[in-house]
Design a protein around this nucleic acid. Structure first.
Length: 683
DNA sequence: GAGCACTGC
């Protein structure tokens, strides 16, 4: 069988450190491939495709308030354009150039790169700001890289962004919820602050849409346009496209067969396969490993988000000589990471996506066909080294029938936190807010309805004081924020902060996939379990961790199968929550073991997610009609099923499952949320 | 008996 076994893992093996989002200096973006590494920095700058457009960019920014830049990753736009603006004197009155990135790693690594090119220290002329890490200087920083959420927060402080000469929204084609809101807000800001310039960088797609969105010219006269497009020639080589003649029945099997076909018939070059989830990737990998044992000279590697850093790094290393590297990945390889050396791409044509259903108020994880844009993006992964080939496991007719664009996140997700932020920014009518791709009105209204139930907006849809205005400032879900603020009133804000912080990290437990270790991990986890459910189990784990002396924390985590890096981040998050509360003269206080109080406080934020055990043996929500079951990751999965629970989220794969449960009493629901449950019964 | 990908003064 496949060697997935962790049996031989030594305690000091690096793969113990399960770490996802933390950034450390030793992990300074292995993801960018630089073919000009041997040249001096200045020579490298001149070789970038964007260099030829330097003067044009500066000219267009004199003439237009908004410039849409189209260029593939690697053309140098994110590193060079801010420097051109600085060199051209845009920052002479002390203003900054702000660049937003969808990911923390990108913000940090771009800032370090540009600081190096400018020969300055990071945090001096060039800096970055991400959550928990502000590496800028109020006096000297002129170019500031940041994550999108940071700019959003700054807009709440200064709605006209007067500290900035220009803002560059980088990689907007990823269409995050934040970017949609940022673009809508920027449209308003640009009307009021005529000195501000906006650059929007996007992959080829949708550039016209973005330009037209920002164009304030209402006349037919093109000379009055306020926005325009500039294309920068990319570094992509042509990619030949192959389709299957007939639809495939099983795309995992077809992927494996296609790998073998390419390996036998095509010249050297690595292969990248796209599948939808971890299970599929693991299946494909073990099939490929069977072949590689039968002397097929391939080197299969999995790639997905929940692999440890160490396992992820393997795809960037050179593979054993004489073997062909075959990476089988989820969508993580579509935009988030770039694997060097890929010449062949196999595309199954599907993707797993979160989808919010406003009628049942559930978030579902569903497998859907990809869009034509995504298909092009996946194919492009084959053309970064030399001309490549893409094998699409669907017919050409199927391709033609795919939707042209991926439905943006804001049209698919729960919107209450977006709505409350807009309200706090003074946008009263959120349904009329200029989103570049407006979400369905019913999703916005569902968001409003939830905020109303939580007490954050009044009957006439105004933010309430103080609750609504306070809630808008927290980087947490609306349910969580409500629990936290209720906890301040009831004296259990510390317990709430701990449980909420634990929800923000990937997982606080380490769960080896198989073997003896996985059994030992389960036994250890059981020792922390409490009958009140998952959130209180989190609290239990954290309390034990916090009670351990600093010197022993790492060892303690190791022997208890708790993720040390997650716990460090949880501690950081609790501190941040504490200082955010301080802003409102609120404090973290503990109720010291009053379990009923803690559970009631959970109900105060999560009461819309209450479910009861139906006599048929499945759970049902009070408001909905679907059947729900307990997710196997829950501590309640193995215990006797409680009569009433509230859950933090649901996932739908084969059936609808509740995650992160708390056991409750039905009378609490009526006591804490009479407005909500009366209303539902009346219907 | 199960986990697309990101992010937050």
């Amino acid at each position: 069988m496949a060697m997935k076994s962790l049996k031989f893992l030594k305690p000091d093996d690096a793969s113990w450190d399960v770490d996802k989002s933390d950034i450390d200096s030793s992990n300074n973006t292995p993801f960018v491939y630089n073919p000009c590494l041997s040249l001096s920095l200045e020579q490298q700058r001149l070789k970038l495709p964007v260099h030829r457009s330097r003067n044009e960019i500066l000219y267009l920014l004199e003439k237009y308030q908004v410039l849409v830049i189209v260029g593939e990753t690697g053309c140098g736009k994110s590193t060079q354009i801010p420097q051109y603006l600085l060199e051209a004197g845009w920052c002479e009155d002390g203003k900054m150039i702000g660049v937003t990135e969808p990911r923390r790693v990108a913000a940090v690594s771009l800032a370090s790169r540009v600081a190096e090119e400018k020969g300055s220290l990071l945090g001096d002329t060039v800096g970055f700001t991400i959550r928990f890490d502000d590496c800028t200087d109020k006096e000297t920083t002129r170019i500031k890289y940041m994550t999108e959420g940071i700019l959003m927060m700054e807009m709440m402080e200064d709605p006209l962004l007067r500290n900035y000469a220009a803002i560059m929204l980088d990689e907007v084609h990823e269409q995050s919820q934040n970017v949609e809101i940022l673009m809508g807000l920027m449209k308003k800001i640009l009307k009021k602050n005529k000195n501000l310039r906006l650059l929007v960088s996007s992959a080829t797609v949708d550039a016209e849409h973005v330009r037209d969105f920002f164009n304030l010219n209402v006349t037919k006269n093109e000379h009055a346009d306020t926005s325009t497009i500039l294309s920068i020639e990319g570094r992509l080589y042509p990619v030949d496209c192959f389709y299957v003649k007939d639809p495939v029945a099983d795309y995992v099997k077809a992927t494996v067969e296609t790998v073998l076909k390419i390996h036998n018939a095509e010249p050297s070059g690595d292969i990248l396969c796209f599948l939808t989830g971890q299970e599929e990737v693991d299946t494909a990998i073990s099939l490929l490993q069977e072949h590689s044992k039968q002397s097929v000279k391939i080197f299969p590697l999995p790639m997905y988000g929940s692999l440890t850093n160490n396992e992820q790094m393997k795809v960037f290393r050179y593979c054993p000589k004489g073997l062909r590297k075959v990476v089988v990945a989820t969508n993580i390889a579509e935009t988030s990471i770039t694997i060097p050396g890929i010449v062949y791409v196999i595309d199954c044509g599907y993707v797993k996506m979160r989808w919010f259903d406003a009628s049942s108020f559930t978030d579902n994880l569903v497998v859907v066909p990809i869009s034509q844009n995504a298909a092009v993006q996946r194919a492009g992964r084959a053309g970064r080294v030399r001309s490549g080939k893409v094998y699409r496991l669907y017919t050409e007719e199927d391709y033609a029938r795919l939707p042209p664009h991926t439905v943006s996140e804001i049209r698919r997700c729960e919107l209450s936190s977006a709505v409350i932020k807009l309200k706090a920014l003074g946008i009263d009518n959120v349904v009329r807010f200029p989103f570049p791709s407006p979400p369905p009105a019913k999703n916005l209204l569902a968001g409003l309805e939830l905020l109303h139930a939580l007490g954050a907006v009044s009957d006439d849809a105004e933010l309430t004081r103080p609750l609504g205005f306070r809630m808008a400032e927290f980087p947490l879900s609306t349910h969580e924020t409500k629990c936290l603020l209720q906890g301040c009133d009831w004296g259990c804000s510390y317990e709430m902060a701990v449980m909420i912080a634990c929800r923000q990290v990937e997982s606080i437990f380490i769960s080896p996939a198989s073997g003896e270790l996985s059994i030992r991990a389960k036994i250890k986890k059981r020792e922390f379990e409490v009958a009140e459910g998952d959130l209180l189990t989190f609290f239990n784990v954290y309390s034990a961790y916090a009670a351990t002396s600093d010197d022993n924390k790492k060892k303690w985590c190791h022997s208890n199968f708790v993720n040390h890096k997650s716990m460090k981040r949880v501690t950081q998050l609790i501190n941040q929550i504490g200082s955010l509360l301080n802003k409102f003269d609120l404090k973290l206080t503990s109720c010291k073991g009053n379990l009923e109080m803690v559970c009631k406080c959970v109900v105060s934020g999560f009461f819309p997610n209450a479910a009861y055990l139906h006599y048929s043996g499945v759970y049902k929500t009070v408001r909905g009609v679907q059947d729900l079951s307990i997710h196997p990751s829950s501590v309640l999965y193995t215990l006797q099923q409680p009569q009433w629970v509230v859950f933090c989220e649901t996932v739908y794969t084969k059936k609808l499952m509740m995650r992160e449960l708390t056991v409750v009493k039905p009378e609490w629901l009526l006591e804490i949320a009479p407005h909500f449950y009366h209303k539902t019964y009346d219907r």
